[in-house]
Nucleic acid binder design. Sequence first.
DNA 1: CATAACCGGGG
DNA 2: GTGTACGGTTATG
Length: 842
Amino acid sequence: MNRKEDEWLWGWDPTPGIVSVWAEPEGRAIVWRRLPETDALVREDLSFRPWLLLASLEDLGHLGARLRPEGDGPAPHRVTYQELEGPGALRYVIRADDGRTLSSAILQGAARRLGRPLQHLRDLPPEVVFVMPPEEQYLIASGRTYFRDLPFDALHRLQFDLETTGLDPEHDRIFLVALRAPDGSTEVLEVHGDEDDDEAEADLLGRLVARIQAWDPDVIENHNLHGFDLPFLARRAQHLGVPLALGRAGAPGLRQRPSARGASLGGRSDAPATNGAAPGQNGGARTDRQRRTRYTVPGRELIDTMDAVLRHDFSARDLPGHGLKAVARHFGLAGPDRELITGARIHHVFRTDPERVRRYACDDVKEAAGLARLLGGAAFALARMAPRRYERLADAGAATGVLDPLLVRAYLRAGAALPAHEPGDGTSHSGAALHLFATGVAKHVVKADVASLYPSLMREYRIGPRRDRLGVLLALVDRLVDQRLDAKARARAALPGSPERHTHEALSAAMKLVVNSAYGYLGAVGLTRFADVHAANEVTRHGREVLGLLCRELAARGVTLLEADTDGVYFSVPPAWEEADERRVVSEVAALLPPRVHLEFDGRYAAMLSHEPKNYALQPYDGPLLLRGVAFRSRRAEPFGEDFLRRALRCLLAGDIPGVREAYISTVLALRRRTIPTHEVASRVRLTKASSQYIATRTRRRELPYEAMLANGRTHWSIGERIRVYRATGGRAGLLPTPATEESEQEDGDALEGRQGSERTSRDPRDYDVEYYTRQLRETFAARLARALTPADFAAVFDDPGQPSLFTPCLSGARPILTVLQEPQEHRDEAESPVETTATPG
DNA sequence: CATAACCGGGG
DNA sequence: GTGTACGGTTATG
């Protein structure tokens, strides 16, 4: 039993060190392995028997004697079949020595049956035929997976980053490439001679290819590699007639593979639906739902750190943005001397200060390498389990990308027929519970939550897909949960920062990812093979019951419930309670929950402002204020307002209402005295229209950013350029020089010839519209404190300091309020079915 | 003014 | 082969 389930999770072939697999439909496969002991690379050329699944043999009847049972011996041009057992639409494994003969035989039979010609197997319905990409056919048939016994740090990884004159490969050129070699050294390649010369650029691309071939990495990485660098490179190479021999085998050139995300830029050139009508198009401006492609090469895995970043932020939701600089800074990967240059000025700076651009580009590849190691371990670990290429696991969704291949492999290994995708029966998916019990300020706040609630419920109540008759999904979840504990223990046992620790942490992260996607898998009707919305609804129903139960039980123990969402609850305890009392109620309630459902004490806070569902501020007993939800963390909020909000919240949560008033007054006065620098009131925007486009619509509607450009004599700009704009006096639009990164308020060196720090302030015009920003302060920022004050106190706190009212309000006795909602606000994500209300605490 | 479409990133 | 969300802005009726 254990062995079988281990095979479901890990495959069964022990071959170590596979770093890349390339297979062709004709039945040839190349496997590159890095020998863990010697670091040497070995290449195996193999043949395999391509296979696919069919619902019936009728389309192969025309083969006559060439169609034989799998058990019969070899015969020339044979096509074999193996009948799988049990129910399931896809019940025949068909194999041949060449996958093309296989598909043409089926197409021929199906065309005859349907009376119309067929081009591709995908023209047949998925319940009739199922084919996987050749690499996956090979991995499933062989039981092999990537990276067995190989630590992440044994991979030979190379990063490269293009610096270009702009974003559009039709018109812009590559003038510099930074490379980071597998040994960690960096190198810069630059265009020699005339930058506007095709030959000079072609020569640069040739040198890039030569360096990659010389270093021969297993993996090529960069941030937005598939979204920018590869499609840009491919387009330029095509224009210049340079062969891109980036792979380890086969014809030079990048190949394309279909993908959900990825190239928004390179796909355009060969997307049939694109008519190129959009003027001033850049990479991001897609006019239709074109199918995206990604590039792939034999022998190397092309890894985009953006995918790892998105995957991380999907659960963590703590990143300030997804750009390389912001993420690197967030994770502490950016050094203190990190060179920053605004994107639009890189080429310009290169002409006057090339050394700065070299530093910048090298910092980019170093950060991309750091990011790839920090966040890429999960995909690396997934590649040890799932029968897919590493590069595909890096950008795949966990449900269709990881669980589906695991399930397919398990069923075939067991010789069991595979169900086809099934459309839903119309039952809608009911979601989690969300309760808002109180708004305003509460003190002595505790957060308790259930770790991995949904997988725990699936395990506890044995809820799996109805059609998964082998119980593979639950078996995988069970094993992943158990083995994850083991991986976590090993990670803890290893030296911090060591390769072993990194590998075990990555494994643990990957396992968590898969476990948590098991529930999503159930609900993805039409997308996943075994989707079962009834099972998914059963999970959420138990989840709502558990949340309701724990809320009731907590309330019965004398706490005040604040907000509960899916698997966690915030509540406030009586002032006399100690932390031990807080922990005691949590464990008392935990004991009442089902065995696998573990309620945990997750944190304690001095105070909380509950604003709206999923929008709150927390003041830890020590440490900085925590803001959650869009109301408190808006990416484009003006810095002066954010700053005010933080100061006001800190006072508010300390019960200091006069302090809130003071924060407000000082901000208003600072605006009026113009002691707030202009960049603090400016907002960052992106220009999405070309100047000609804007001028065409300008009479109908004026837009601040473009007005700011025009008013500052900027009549030309590129789409996507980021600027800082503000409202200036007299209805004018103000424009500020953009610092190199969103977060950086450091001087923007290249804008200031001579680099005098004081120059910036002396240049600050300070001509912003004070009244506009005062109103903004009151209406959008102060408004977020409304729940915490009585209407009278709110009016007094945010009374205009310049126009003293008749009553000088006395705030010294004012206290923040907490309003316990009579009817707690009940929400349910995607709720369509009748709502069972959770009993409210007494 | 409401709803639909589109964006996130890269130089 | 399939797909990630979701909150915010801009385009359009």
